[in-house]
Design a protein around this nucleic acid. Structure first.
Lengths: 119, 119
DNA sequence: TAAATAGTTGAATAACTGTTCAACTGTTTA
DNA sequence: TAAACAGTTGAACAGTTATTCAACTATTTA
């Protein structure tokens, strides 16, 4: 009779509740991509970039001024946001313009605002 | 004529856009509390706790089993979530039950799911 | 009242994240 | 075609965060 090593030695107190919740919970993989998604809002620079791009498309230099960090820092953050499909870019000559790729961004930012105002 | 040291040496390319966006953007303080709020969703353990508590109130031990981490880890995360006014607790004898303190949690989780499914 | 159990707390640590720097690419223009 | 400029990339570093461990508190129960 083998012991479930994955499970640590944690005690289950309410067996039925644990079973019910386990069934309803999304998979670890889904939870992980969900939390990765929220990571894109959980840093002041990223949040500011998203907020700014919700107002208008912007280039890297201008975003750097707005966010008070280097162009390089902005570029790194933008590539994370792009990876997460939240922003897209177009090049016009030397300048690369970034804009929101997903309309849900605004809604999500606003939900957060409502909460942070309520406290 | 002093130089604005805060501003680094970043070049403003579109002066008017930068001015417009600066005016419409929330204050740094607000952006910071907004991103702190989203930090509460941006870690798999926290996201899982919130999701589980959206199903039913739960005690620390059971949450530890569900999340496959120690009771201590859960307790630390719960105190962060409590600090952010996202969960509340009640004690019943030896057992402390945690539940959601804010109905917006469910909505926010669901918004995230919609996005992560779309990719 | 002592033992057992649920939960909390602070220190230590490992992993992760955001930033800058320096070197690079791509595009324009003199 | 060389210089200037916008942006990217990877390495290095500092700061943050999530976890565990060990010691603690609070409550129940034998």
């Amino acid at each position: 009779m083998e012991k479930n090593i994955e499970m640590c030695e944690n005690t289950i107190i309410h067996k039925e509740i644990v079973e019910t919740v386990k069934k309803q919970l999304p998979s670890d993989k889904k939870i992980e991509s969900l939390s990765n998604f929220y990571k894109m809002f959980s840093d002041p620079t990223k949040a500011k970039i998203l907020w700014a791009l919700d107002i208008t498309e912007m280039c890297v230099c201008d975003l750097a001024v707005i966010c008070k960090v280097s162009k390089s820092a902005i570029s790194h953050q933008l590539s994370a946001l792009k990876e997460a499909n939240l922003v897209k870019s177009r090049r016009d000559g030397k300048i690369v313009y970034y804009s929101l790729a997903d309309s849900c961004v605004k809604e999500i930012l606003e939900k957060g605002v409502i909460h942070t105002i309520n406290e």
